[in-house]
Nucleic acid binder design. Structure first.
Lengths: 133, 133, 133, 133
DNA sequence: GTGGTCTAGACCACG
DNA sequence: GTGGTCTAGACCACA
C-alpha cells in the first residue's frame, strides 16, 4: 500500500510526471517490492483527488518504461528488476547527471557534498542486487 | 564566439530550454569566459534558423538565473562567478541529482561508472574557483 | 491430452484469446487429432489456475469457429477438417498476413527469411490434406 | 496530404488502432514519404469526425513505435527508415505471421496463393531500401 | 472491481 | 495554429 504520493499542483511539472517520479522513487528505494500491487487507478485517483485518466497515463508510461506491469482486470504490479534496459534512456540519464553536477559545481556546491549525496543515493537504491555497465 | 549550439527540433524539450542548456554548458565549462560577449539575438537567430523571440526568451531566462547580464544597447555578456545563489535552485538540482543517480543505479549502472562521471564533470567545471555548500 | 497451454497474465491479450490461440495451434499442427477429446473445462481450469468461465468462453468461440465440436454431457472434441469456411475469416487472415509481412519488410526483415518462415509453417500445418483457395 | 483513412466504428478493434494501421500502411507502401507532414491532430479529427484525443493517442503510439516523429508546435512527420528496431516487435510480428499462415493453410488456402500474396506485399513495401535479418 | 476506450470541452506552452 | 495536459463523465470487456 502506498501512503506518500505528494502532488504539487503549482509545480509546472505535469501531474502525471510527478506521479511517475513518486512511484519510481518508491520502487527504486525498495519501498515497493517486486510483484507488489499498486493502488488501482480509481483508488489512487480518489485518494489524490486526481482524475483517473491522469493516473492511468502515469501508469501506462511506467509500464512502457519497464517499472511496472499490468494484468488486465487485476491491477498494476511492480516489475522485477529490469533486464533489457533501453540504452537511450541510460544516455539520457547520464546527460542529466552531467548537467546537474556541472551546474551544482558552478554554483559553488562543494565537491565533497556532491559525492556524498551520490554515494548515499546509490547505497539506498537497488536492493535487488545485479550489476551492469 | 559560440560555435556549437545544437538544437534538435524533434526533442520534446522546448527549443529555448535547449538553447539555455547549451549556453549554460559553455559557461560552466569555461568555453565562454566572464564578461565575454554573447552573439546578439539577431545573429544567433540567423545562424541557427531559430525564431528571434525564442532566442530572446532563452537570454531573458539566463539573465534572471544569473548566468549572463545585459547591457542595453550593447548586448549580452557572461556573468562573473555567481554570488547570491538561489537556494531553491540548489535544492532542485540536488533533487534532480538524486533522481538520476537512483534510476541509473536501479537500471544497473555500475557505481564506479557513476562516480567517475561525477568526478570528471566536477573537475571540468568551475574554472573560476570559489567554494560554497 | 494437452500438455502445453502457456498463459501469460501480463500479456494484454485476453486470456480466453490466448487459450484459443494455443488450442488452435495444437489442432493446426496436428498435435490434436480429429475427434480427439479435449480436456474438460473443469480439468483445464484446474491445471492452469484459470477461471472456468474463461475456459468455457474459449471453447464456445472455438466451436463457433469450427475448430471443435461439443457433445453435451460428453465433452469437447477436435473437429475434422473444416468444410464450409467463413470467407470473411479468410479475408481477415489475408489482411493480417499482409499487414504483418508489410511491417516486417519495412522494419528490415530479409525477404528470404520471411518466405522461409511462411513455407515452414505451411509444411508443418494441414496434416489432414484438402485444398481450397 | 492523406485522403484515405477508413474507420469502421462497428469494428471491435479500437479506433486508435485502426488509425495506426491506416497510417502505418501509408508509410510502409510509400504513399507517405519520409519527413512528409501528417495532417494535424485537429484537422484529422475534423475530417474523420473522431475525437482529437483519440487521434492524438494514435499519433503518440506511432511515434513511440518509430513510425513518425513530432515537432512541438509544428506537427507530426513521417520518420525516415527505422534503424534500431525493437527485437521484441519483430518476434511478435513473426508470431503473428506464423499464426495467420498456419490458420490459412488449415482452412484450405492454397500454398501458391499465400506465397504470392507474401511476395507481392514485400515487393510493394520498403521503397527506401536497406536490408536486415 | 479492474483496466481500456472514447467523447466533449477546456486551458496552456510553444514558436 | 500546433501539440500537451487535464477534467468530467460514460460505456465496455475481462475475470
Amino acid at each position: 500500500m502506498i501512503s506518500i504520493i505528494a502532488i504539487d499542483l503549482r509545480n509546472p511539472k505535469p501531474i502525471y510526471e510527478q506521479i511517475k517520479d513518486n512511484i519510481k522513487q518508491l520502487i527504486i528505494t525498495g519501498a515497493l517490492k517486486p510483484d507488489e500491487k499498486l493502488p488501482s487507478v480509481r483508488e489512487l485517483a480518489q485518494t489524490t483527488s486526481i482524475n483517473p485518466n491522469t493516473i492511468q497515463k502515469a501508469y501506462r508510461d511506467l509500464e512502457s518504461d519497464g517499472f511496472i506491469y499490468t494484468v488486465s482486470g487485476r491491477g498494476n504490479f511492480v516489475a522485477p528488476s529490469p533486464k533489457n534496459v533501453d540504452s537511450k534512456r541510460l544516455e539520457e540519464l547520464y546527460d542529466i547527471l552531467r548537467a546537474a553536477v556541472g551546474e551544482l559545481s558552478y554554483l559553488g556546491a562543494a565537491q565533497s557534498n556532491i559525492i556524498e549525496i551520490v554515494q548515499n543515493t546509490i547505497s539506498r537504491s537497488r536492493p535487488q542486487g545485479g550489476n551492469k555497465t
